[in-house]
Simulated scan of single mutants.
Amino acid sequence: MSSNASTRMNNTPLPRSEIYSPYAQHHEQEKTHDAEDLGIENRPPKQHSPLLHFYRSISWILGFKDKYSLLNCFVWGGALVGFSLARSVAMNPKPKSIAAELVPGEWFWFQQPLYKINLFFHIYLTTFGGLCAVLQFFPAIRRVSYGVLFCLIVGNICGSIIGRRSFGGELNAQSGFYALGIMIAFSGLLGIYNVKRDTRRHRKWMLRMVVYFCAAITARIIMIIAREIITTIGTYYSIFRCDELIDLLTDAQAVQSAFPQCVAPGINPASFWVAVHASTHNGPLHLASAARATKGMALWIATLIHVVGVEYYIRATDAANGMRVGFVLEPLDYSESSTTSY
């Protein structure tokens, strides 16, 4: 019995882990050395915060492929929505309400029929267009919306028309308004042209259009800072026509004491101009002068910032810019014939 038992025990196959192999130790040492070289065994597993997991989940749900796209959309899109909502109070058609939202003295010009009509079109169309444009940048819900394009293009054309008298009609401000209007309209039209021809080009021109449109927000921020700077310097002036000035300063004695040349005998207020000190501390007239002195400069600086910024963003995210194949956005290397376009 004992011999048979020992025979069966000797014939029982050993577990694979106990079978001797002359190469086993060598392989284990190689794996250990490879792991040490790579630093794997000493590197703890990377832990992501719940906030980062939440951010990535929302980004994936909304269809973003680049990790910073959702953040950019939230920051800059939120600024556009906030600005549009803030300016929506000017949609009140009552003259007193809308005049209170304008720079002091602007209503003198904008109450004229040509400018009044274009002012209301500009306010209504750009407010609706700005609110709806943000939704077009969420890939999961993106749809071709000609209504948004119509609002932004036509609204900015109307804004260019009132630019003739906006902020006093200073030449540097006029040129800034006209340049932005042309850039926005041109980008929007090219975006429409490429809707079904080239999705990649369409995305780029839509980005340019909305970013150019948002230059007005940056210009206002720059203008607020610049007004305080020139007030501190104290040597800046803007030009006002006398009838415009008299309309703003309803007190005849104030006009007589500060600007006697406007009420001098034989003077036509519609053809005589006076210099007004630019300051934020001396009432609405001088505040309007400070706004006029800084608006053109602010527009051009903001336009330059936005042009550089959007071109950098377009190139930085070009790899994630899919091309349309049927109803699906495919990667750039989906087809060998696809090329990068700008």
Rank of each mutant, 00 (worst) to 15 (best):
F54W: 09
L51E: 06
P113H: 11
K116Y: 14
S59H: 00
L70M: 08
L125E: 10
S97K: 09
K94S: 05
I123T: 04
L51A: 14
W107R: 12
F121S: 14
L70C: 00
H53L: 09
M91D: 04
I123P: 05
T126F: 02
F108P: 00
I58Q: 04
W109V: 00
E106V: 03
S88Q: 07
F74L: 11
F64V: 01
G63P: 05
Y55H: 09
A100Q: 04
I58R: 05
L80H: 06
M91Q: 10
F121W: 02
K96P: 06
L52F: 11
W76M: 13
F108W: 08
K94A: 14
L62M: 14
W76F: 12
Y55L: 11
S97C: 06
L114E: 15
I117W: 04
H53D: 12
F54T: 13
Y68A: 06
P104C: 14
L114M: 15
H122Y: 06
L80Q: 11
M91W: 14
S84K: 03
L70K: 00
W60V: 04
G82P: 06
F120N: 10
I98V: 09
F121V: 15
L125G: 14
G77H: 01
Y124K: 12
L52I: 05
F54Q: 13
N118S: 09
K65C: 01
L102Y: 00
F120I: 09
F64C: 02
S57Q: 08
R87P: 07
W60D: 12
S97I: 04
L85S: 02
Y124H: 15
I58D: 05
L102P: 02
Y124I: 11
A90W: 10
A86M: 05
W107D: 12
K65D: 08
L80W: 08
L51S: 14
N72F: 10
L70S: 00
